[in-house]
Amino acid sequence: MKPQPNIDAIRRILVVGSGAMGTQIGALFALAGYDVTTSDLDASALDRSREEVRRRLGRLAEKGRRSSEEVESALARMSYTTDSFAAACEADFILEAAVERIDIKRKLFADLDAAAPDHAILATNSSTIPSSVLMDATTRPDRVCNMHFFNPALVMACVEVVRNPETSDATVDTTVALAEKLGKQPVRINREIPGFVANRLLRALRAEALELEAAGIASFEDIDVAARTALGHPMGPFELMDLVGIDVAYLVRAAEHEQTGNPADLPHPSLKKMYEQGHYGRKTGRGWYDYEAQP
């Protein structure tokens, strides 16, 4: 009988993918006292991730949100490697934060499953690809789930824990407890649905905002003002798209359409145009807003 997941057995974490989400999630685990390895095939991406973690945690210390000792201890618990599978051999919990492509994730999960200890949970941070399409690439479907963080992960409190039809209660309970140890507020999602919960709510708002802008009802700037001043949102839907990334918004909708086949799930033409032009928001200096022109 295979051992069941248990929060007390989790000591070493592997985060696969050193992009914006993987970088911050790794830092969260380290701040919570876990030994963390971040892996990526691209060594230069790992270098950028290491520097980004130092910068972000340094700012937490400067603002008094974390002590200098906490930050230094967290940094000392973090390591980086291009060999995901060697790191998986010692991991108790593995979180994948790689590109949003099912074929890549399935291959990755199969390889990680072969390397990881029997008790290890394999989780994906994907906001659109459910673990049910990944679980049969492994020999442990009961220990596979979504653990979906929100950007910026160091700030946003919500973590969605989504079970697939085979996910065990022990896996869900352990993943929820892990989110709580990170200081997050986990949301249990009992049945898979495209977009899960938070993004479905956000999608409805974003879709209406895009339609209002495309129809000339109001400018995207004024729509953002309405969201902030009337609804109390910290930022408007267009500002949020620029922060998260136009490319991310586009690829999320494309992935949802791939799952459902519903034409209504296709990315909005405005998103498609900006994606094809390479205007991804803050990360490229231009999205809905022009950040290069700002002082």
Rank of each mutant, 00 (worst) to 15 (best):
T171R: 09
L210C: 12
N6W: 09
S131I: 12
D247N: 10
T81F: 04
V36G: 05
A209V: 08
D136S: 12
P234S: 11
V161R: 03
D290A: 12
V15Q: 06
N164Y: 01
L122N: 01
L95Y: 11
T260L: 06
A215V: 08
D40V: 04
V16D: 05
R106G: 10
F93A: 08
G58P: 03
L182P: 04
S39N: 03
P3A: 13
E276C: 10
D173L: 14
S79D: 09
A9H: 13
D247I: 08
V225D: 09
A227T: 03
V161L: 02
S44E: 14
D35V: 01
R77I: 02
T81K: 02
L212D: 10
P152Q: 13
T167A: 04
E160H: 00
F238I: 08
T124K: 01
N190E: 14
K2C: 00
V155E: 11
P186L: 07
R65T: 14
L122W: 02
K181D: 04
E292M: 10
Q185E: 15
E100S: 01
Q24V: 02
Q259A: 15
R163D: 02
R143P: 12
I246R: 01
P3D: 13
A115I: 06
L266A: 14
K283Y: 06
C89I: 01
A88W: 04
F238R: 05
V162M: 05
V176P: 03
M241R: 03
D35M: 03
L243I: 05
G183N: 04
K63I: 06
Q24I: 00
S39R: 05
F150L: 12
P130F: 00
G261S: 11
Q185L: 15
A137P: 12
A45D: 03
R101N: 14
R56L: 11
F149S: 02
V71D: 07
S219T: 15
E70W: 04
R55P: 01
A97I: 00
R50C: 10
S49I: 02
D247Q: 09
A98H: 05
G64L: 14
N6S: 13
P234M: 09
A198T: 13
I25M: 09
F85T: 11
A218K: 06
N199H: 11
N151F: 05
D47S: 05
H268A: 11
I13Y: 11
Y280Q: 00
P269N: 11
V252S: 12
T171A: 13
R65E: 15
C158Y: 00
A86T: 14
A20Y: 11
Q24C: 09
T171P: 09
G26C: 11
R282D: 01
P267E: 07
I94G: 00
R200S: 07
V15L: 12
L112Y: 07
I217C: 06
I246Q: 07
L178Q: 08
Q294A: 13
V16S: 11
S79K: 15
N125D: 02
A157I: 02
G22Y: 03
V197G: 04
M21D: 03
E52F: 01
Y80K: 01
V15F: 02
I7P: 09
A9V: 08
K63N: 06
V159G: 02
H257G: 06
T128G: 09
A123T: 03
P269V: 12
A86F: 05
